[in-house]
Design a protein around this nucleic acid. Structure first.
Lengths: 110, 110
DNA sequence: CTCATATATTTGAATATTCTAATATAACAA
DNA sequence: TTGTTATATTAGAATATTCAAATATATGAG
């Protein structure tokens, strides 16, 4: 049950469980960006961004390459976007379910 | 950047970021199970399981139905399994990458 | 070498999550 | 009613994660 693989799977999802890290992956959808560019797109400061990039690097969601003083981050495994899109389908349905419950609740004010 | 939706997405992944919760979803792959049955399959005690089921319920990964004194849990949105399988493809590749790095390291003992 | 720019790492406090143990609730049987 | 089984919830301690601030490193210019 708590085999290394099970733990690894959990780490995989945990790594995606932060809004800044999701924003980073989103920002890299159309190709590599430098840290400075990421800072501009996502409103987060340098240190925070660097810390989250480190986590994404450890779990191999992103790769980086230096070009002079600039470091470009990239998402080498493009299937991640298919995966994120599938996730979106699911959580949109989950949200709609909640919405419907609220609608049922509102008119009768129960 | 920290819009409610972004936070919600993160919650979605965070909910999957625990080995017991992943084990629960795995156990429910072939149909509903009661809490007692889940306890048998996954080696975790009642309270723990119940707490993790609560989190999965809140995020609508599972639904529950009572039958006399027994409560059966189910995964109503089957697309979740497609999604989990896609995740597996990705993290298996990520693990292989790490494995290759280790192989490169071993022979030369660098 | 010194300075500037870009990025990474470390440290500790703030916050969130998980676990354990105890208690609560719900359904039913006797 | 009392007891029993199945499950849920609560409370607090243990642990993990995040953030902010400070510091470190790497590269290149002058």
């Amino acid at each position: 049950m708590n085999s290394p693989l099970h733990v690894y799977k959990a780490e995989f999802f945990k790594t995606l469980g932060h809004s800044v890290r999701l924003a980073i992956l989103d920002a890299l959808r159309d190709g590599p960006l430098s840290v400075t560019e990421l800072q501009a797109v996502i409103q987060a400061d340098q240190s925070i961004l660097s810390q989250h990039l480190a986590k994404l690097r450890v779990m191999k969601f992103v790769s980086s390459r230096r070009e002079r003083t600039t470091i470009y981050y990239d998402v080498p495994d493009r299937e991640i976007y298919q995966f994120l899109d599938l996730a979106r389908n699911i959580y949109v349905r989950q949200l709609r379910q909640t919405e419907e419950m609220l609608k049922e609740l509102a008119p009768s004010e129960e």
